[in-house]
Computed example of a mutant assay.
Amino acid sequence: MSKLKLITFDLDNTLWPVDEVIHHAEKTCSDWIADNHPDAAAALSAERVRAVRTALLKEKPQYLDNLTALRQDAMRRAFMEHGFNEAEARRIAMDAFKVFHTARNQVRFFPGARTVLEQLAGHYLLGALTNGNADLKLIGIDDLFAFHHSAESIGKRKPAPDMFAAALRDADVCPSQAMHIGDHPLEDVHAAREHGMHAVWANLVEMDWPVELERPRHHILTLDEIPGLAASFDK
């Protein structure tokens, strides 16, 4: 067995629960629009934005590879459909997204996350691989990671192999020297093991494993299980 050198992490629902983060960020964004552009607030009801997002994804499924662009363009289109000209709609949407993005990166870690990352960073290269748009610098853990790849930076979301291949290239390791930890059965666990990496299902949000996928060999319920598991591969 090759010595373990690289550990990559998914972020949302792996290092922190994401639903409460997004809910808070969307409310913060809506409150900002209501306070600063009350004439635009009516355009951004939750139902309206969902409808616009659905329409945009139907027109251009590639938006799933860039959630930042999807959210910005959904707000812009909602404003335009409400009567704003394109330049004004774009300006308000970009300003509103900055508010959303700041709040989106105010996360509450799962217990032990920072301690485990600090412990692992002393022994392995750490990388972040995410389909979302979390900002490690804003969150305050960028110093622990050698690299951070996202669907936006790579151009393809997991389970496509591109992000995993980029991680292996950056770390200059072979797949058997790498372990990926994530919450999503298909996008994290199945995709990583298809790429030849050790794959760990981090089920911290109590999901059910889909019956159509082979069950994972490695399954954790708390992050503090990771150092011991990593050591079992470190031979």
Score class of each variant (00 low, 15 high):
Arg71Cys: 13
Arg71Asn: 05
Arg71His: 06
Gln72Thr: 08
Gln72Ser: 05
Gln72Tyr: 02
Asp73Phe: 05
Asp73His: 11
Asp73Ala: 12
Ala74Leu: 13
Ala74Glu: 06
Ala74Cys: 10
Ala74Tyr: 03
Met75Phe: 10
Arg76Asn: 14
Arg76Ala: 12
Arg76Tyr: 07
Arg76Pro: 03
Arg76Gly: 12
Arg76Lys: 12
Arg77Leu: 15
Arg77Thr: 14
Ala78Lys: 02
Ala78Asp: 08
Ala78Tyr: 02
Ala78Cys: 15
Phe79Gln: 01
Phe79Ile: 11
Phe79Ala: 11
Phe79Asp: 10
Phe79Asn: 06
Phe79His: 03
Met80Phe: 10
Met80Trp: 09
Met80Val: 08
Glu81Asn: 04
Glu81Asp: 10
Glu81Val: 11
His82Ser: 15
Gly83His: 01
Gly83Cys: 05
Phe84Leu: 11
Phe84Arg: 00
Phe84Gln: 08
Phe84Gly: 03
Phe84Thr: 00
Phe84Ala: 11
Asn85Pro: 07
Asn85Arg: 02
Asn85Ala: 15
Glu86Asp: 12
Glu86Gln: 10
Glu86Leu: 09
Glu86Lys: 03
Glu86Arg: 03
Ala87Val: 14
Ala87Gly: 09
Ala87Ile: 13
Glu88Tyr: 01
Ala89Leu: 12
Ala89His: 07
Ala89Ile: 10
Ala89Gln: 01
Arg90Thr: 14
Arg90Phe: 06
Arg91Gln: 13
Ile92Met: 02
Ile92Ser: 02
Ala93Asp: 08
Ala93Ile: 12
Ala93Tyr: 00
Ala93Phe: 02
Ala93Gly: 11
Met94Pro: 00
Met94Trp: 01
Met94Ser: 09
Met94Gly: 05
Asp95Pro: 00
Asp95Arg: 00
Asp95Ile: 05
Ala96Glu: 00
Phe97Asn: 07
Phe97Ser: 02
Lys98Asn: 07
Lys98Asp: 13
Lys98His: 08
Val99Asn: 03
Phe100Arg: 04
His101Phe: 14
His101Asn: 11
His101Cys: 08
His101Thr: 10
His101Arg: 04
His101Gln: 15
Thr102Cys: 11
Thr102Gln: 10
Thr102Ala: 14
Thr102Phe: 07
Thr102Asn: 07
Ala103Gly: 11
Ala103Cys: 04
Ala103Trp: 00
Ala103His: 05
Arg104Ile: 01
Arg104Val: 05
Asn105Tyr: 00
Asn105Ser: 10
Asn105Glu: 08
Gln106Gly: 10
Val107Trp: 00
Val107Asp: 09
Val107Glu: 09
Val107Lys: 04
Val107Asn: 08
Val107Cys: 04
Val107Pro: 03
Arg108Ala: 14
Arg108Glu: 14
Arg108Met: 12
Arg108Phe: 08
Phe110Tyr: 13
Phe110Asp: 15
Phe110Met: 15
Phe110Thr: 13
Phe110Gln: 10
